[in-house]
Simulated assay, not measured.
Amino acid sequence: MNPLTLNPTSFDAAIVDLDGTMVDTLGDFAQALNLMLADLLPGDAPAARLDAAAIERMVGKGSEHLVKSALQHVQGQMGGVDASVRLVDRYEQAYAGYQKHYAGINGRYSTVYPGVVDGLQALQQAGLQLACLTNKPVGFARELLKLKGLEGFFSQVFGGDSFERKKPDPLPLLKTCESLGTVPARTLMVGDSSNDARAARAAGCPVVLVTYGYNHGEPVRDVDADGFVDSLAGLSWEK
């Protein structure tokens, strides 16, 4: 484990990302996206499937971006297939199908990362208020937290459809701080990607990243952050 020692008197609250930070949801994404693709493709079209490695590079910017990226990726794989099979032109149908399928499998193919519960307990014991802020639609986020037994840690939960803009825009962090009654400089952002770090920097929040999440296929330690941990349990506090 790579521990990071923090001074609890420096913070009043923590904002924690969901996908790739608390829960490994690649299995859920894969199931929903591949069911979506099966609905879109005619019966005589070549089978198209997305694997976890491809999906990992697409995650983190909201469901709309995920579905568009998936369609573009599969369209590229299909190459010279009949022009009538234009997945990228069927975004609205694809998005509706993805939402339907994701609602049916949310949480069934995902797991809580090791150390998450211990890390959240440590944040609470340090006296911090906790909010969950994700680009996942808030309804899916609340249900996932409930299914994984994590909802009790958070006084606030916000998703990609809670505000006018998503991370990496700073607006969601600023609105979350406002809801918590804290100032950004005393509100720790805990995430897994450059999306979280860029949003935190722009909002004026200190930011710590986990090393195991989804950073769009890029090395997470290259991201501008205040620290890195291999597990949320690696967040420790000065006595």
Results as ranks from 00 to 15, higher is better:
2 N>Q: 11
3 P>K: 01
4 L>G: 06
8 P>T: 07
10 S>G: 05
11 F>S: 00
13 A>K: 05
14 A>E: 02
16 V>S: 01
17 D>G: 10
19 D>G: 09
20 G>T: 13
22 M>Y: 09
24 D>K: 04
28 D>S: 06
29 F>V: 03
30 A>K: 11
33 L>E: 02
33 L>F: 01
35 L>H: 06
36 M>V: 14
37 L>P: 06
37 L>I: 11
38 A>R: 14
42 P>W: 02
42 P>R: 05
46 P>R: 10
47 A>L: 12
50 L>I: 14
50 L>M: 14
51 D>S: 12
51 D>L: 13
51 D>I: 15
54 A>S: 15
58 M>Y: 12
58 M>L: 13
58 M>C: 13
59 V>S: 11
59 V>K: 03
60 G>L: 07
65 H>K: 14
69 S>I: 05
69 S>H: 09
71 L>P: 03
72 Q>T: 14
73 H>Q: 09
73 H>L: 13
75 Q>I: 14
76 G>Q: 06
78 M>V: 11
82 D>P: 12
85 V>K: 03
86 R>Q: 11
86 R>D: 14
86 R>I: 08
86 R>P: 01
87 L>N: 06
89 D>T: 15
89 D>C: 09
90 R>N: 12
90 R>C: 08
90 R>S: 10
90 R>W: 03
95 Y>C: 04
100 K>N: 00
101 H>P: 03
103 A>H: 01
104 G>K: 00
104 G>N: 00
105 I>N: 02
105 I>Y: 04
106 N>L: 11
106 N>A: 12
108 R>T: 15
110 S>F: 07
110 S>K: 05
111 T>V: 12
111 T>F: 04
113 Y>V: 08
117 V>S: 11
118 D>S: 11
120 L>E: 00
126 A>D: 11
127 G>L: 03
127 G>M: 01
128 L>W: 15
131 A>E: 02
134 T>A: 08
135 N>L: 10
139 G>C: 12
140 F>G: 00
144 L>S: 10
144 L>Q: 09
147 L>E: 10
147 L>F: 08
151 E>F: 08
151 E>W: 08
153 F>E: 01
158 F>Q: 04
160 G>V: 06
162 S>D: 04
162 S>N: 07
165 R>D: 05
166 K>W: 04
166 K>N: 13
170 P>L: 10
172 P>T: 07
173 L>G: 05
175 K>Y: 00
176 T>R: 03
179 S>F: 02
185 A>W: 04
185 A>K: 09
186 R>T: 15
188 L>N: 02
194 S>Y: 02
197 A>Y: 01
200 A>R: 02
200 A>G: 10
203 A>C: 12
204 G>N: 03
204 G>S: 04
208 V>H: 04
210 V>T: 15
212 Y>I: 07
213 G>W: 01
219 P>V: 14
220 V>C: 05
222 D>P: 07
222 D>V: 06
224 D>L: 10
227 G>C: 01
228 F>P: 11
228 F>D: 09
229 V>N: 03
230 D>C: 05
231 S>Y: 00
231 S>A: 14
232 L>G: 06
233 A>P: 10
233 A>E: 15
237 W>M: 13
